[in-house]
Computed example of a mutant assay.
Amino acid sequence: MLPAWLDLIAGPVVAATQAPAVGELKGEVLREWGSSEVWRLSYGLRSVIVKRGSDAQTSEGAAYRRFVVPLQLPAPRLIHSAETSDAVLLVLADVGRVNLEQEPSASGFLAAAELLAEVRSKPVDVASEFTSRQLVELVRRSPVGPELAERLFSLGVAALDQLHEATPARVVHGDYVPKNLVTDGTRWTIVDWPLAYVAPHLSDLYTLVRDAVAVGHQAEPIVARYIDAAGTDPSLVQRQLTAGGIAFILRALTWVVEEGVRTVPSSSEWIEPLLAELDDVTKDLR
C-alpha cells in the first residue's frame, strides 16, 4: 500500500529510485500523526523519504529554503517539494534506518553534541525570533500560573535580553531529540526541520541532554563535548541552556493547547509535567 497523495510527487520519486513505475515501489510507514505522515519508498536498494505535513509541519519547505540549503546544514538532501492548499509534500534523501531513540548509545549522544556545534557555527543574517517579546507572548498564550508567569516576566525577560547582548543568534532546530537524529552507521544527520528558527539560546542542547538523562546517561559529558566542539565559554553555555529550556517548554505548551490537543489528543497529558519542568528550570534564573 502506498500513500494516497503520492501521485502529486510520483515523478521525482520514480526518478530518484529508478523504479519502472509507481506501482513497483515498496512502501513503509515511518510516522502517521494528525499533522505529519512519513514514508520510506524503495525500489531494490534505492529508497527515498516522502513526507506530507500540515498545520505547523507545513513550514519544513521554508526551513530548507531559509536555513538548510544556504547554510549546508547536516540534513537530508531535498530532492523535491510541492505544496497543496493545506499541506507541503517533500521528497528527501534516505539518510539511514537507525535513529538515536532506537539505539540511545553514549557515543551517539556525544556525536549529536558535536553535530549541534556544527549547526551553531553557521552565521545567519536573520534577526532573533525568540526575544523577550516572544517570551512574554508565549507565557500569555500558555497555561502558566500567575506566580510562575511573574517570575518569567521579571527574571526571564532580563536573562533573555542579556543573552542577546552576549552572543549572536544562530539556527535552532526546535525538536532536537533522539528520534530526529539518524545514522547510516557512519554519519549522523538531523531530520525534521519544520520548527527551525533563529535564537541565541541552546534549546537544542537542552532537549538532547534531557533525553540522554532520561535513558540513564550523564549530562556533564554531553555538555562538555558541545563546549569543546563549539570552542565556547562554559558559563555562557549554562545561561543558554536555561534560556533554551524555557523556550522549549513554552513553545511545547503553546503547541499542545493550540494544536496538539486536536492533532495528537494524548498530548494534553504533557501539560502538567511540562509546567513542573518549567518551574524547575526557572529556578536557575538569576
Rank of each mutant, 00 (worst) to 15 (best):
143 P>N: 05
183 T>A: 03
203 S>R: 12
259 E>L: 15
203 S>Y: 01
54 S>L: 04
200 P>K: 02
155 L>W: 03
166 A>V: 00
146 P>K: 04
11 G>I: 08
74 P>W: 02
281 V>G: 12
165 E>Y: 06
111 A>N: 02
81 S>F: 12
153 F>M: 01
249 I>Q: 07
269 E>G: 12
41 L>I: 07
56 A>Q: 10
214 A>S: 12
256 V>T: 11
247 A>C: 07
218 Q>C: 14
221 P>E: 14
280 D>E: 15
200 P>I: 00
227 I>D: 14
36 S>F: 10
54 S>V: 06
285 L>M: 06
135 L>T: 04
197 Y>D: 01
232 T>L: 08
65 R>K: 15
88 V>W: 12
19 A>T: 03
154 S>G: 04
125 D>S: 09
68 V>T: 06
191 V>Y: 07
145 G>C: 06
175 D>Q: 03
264 V>T: 15
264 V>G: 02
178 P>H: 07
1 M>R: 11
249 I>C: 04
236 L>F: 07
276 A>G: 05
80 H>M: 09
204 D>F: 02
81 S>Q: 15
160 L>A: 04
195 L>P: 00
233 D>F: 09
242 T>Q: 10
18 Q>G: 10
182 V>N: 05
202 L>Q: 03
168 P>H: 02
147 E>Y: 10
123 P>Y: 01
215 V>R: 04
245 G>P: 02
39 W>E: 05
187 R>G: 00
123 P>D: 03
107 S>M: 06
107 S>P: 00
5 W>D: 02
130 F>Y: 05
34 G>T: 14
57 Q>R: 15
216 G>F: 07
58 T>M: 15
15 A>V: 07
209 V>N: 00
208 L>R: 00
155 L>D: 13
20 P>A: 08
265 P>F: 15
75 A>W: 05
19 A>E: 08
278 L>S: 12
159 A>L: 00
105 S>K: 13
237 V>S: 09
46 R>Q: 10
98 V>H: 11
23 G>V: 04
147 E>M: 08
254 T>Q: 14
41 L>R: 08
175 D>V: 02
116 L>P: 03
41 L>W: 02
196 A>I: 03
242 T>L: 14
245 G>M: 03
5 W>F: 14
114 E>P: 02
130 F>C: 08
103 E>F: 08
285 L>P: 11
137 E>G: 01
109 F>G: 01
147 E>I: 05
168 P>F: 01
206 Y>M: 00
156 G>L: 04
178 P>S: 07
125 D>N: 03
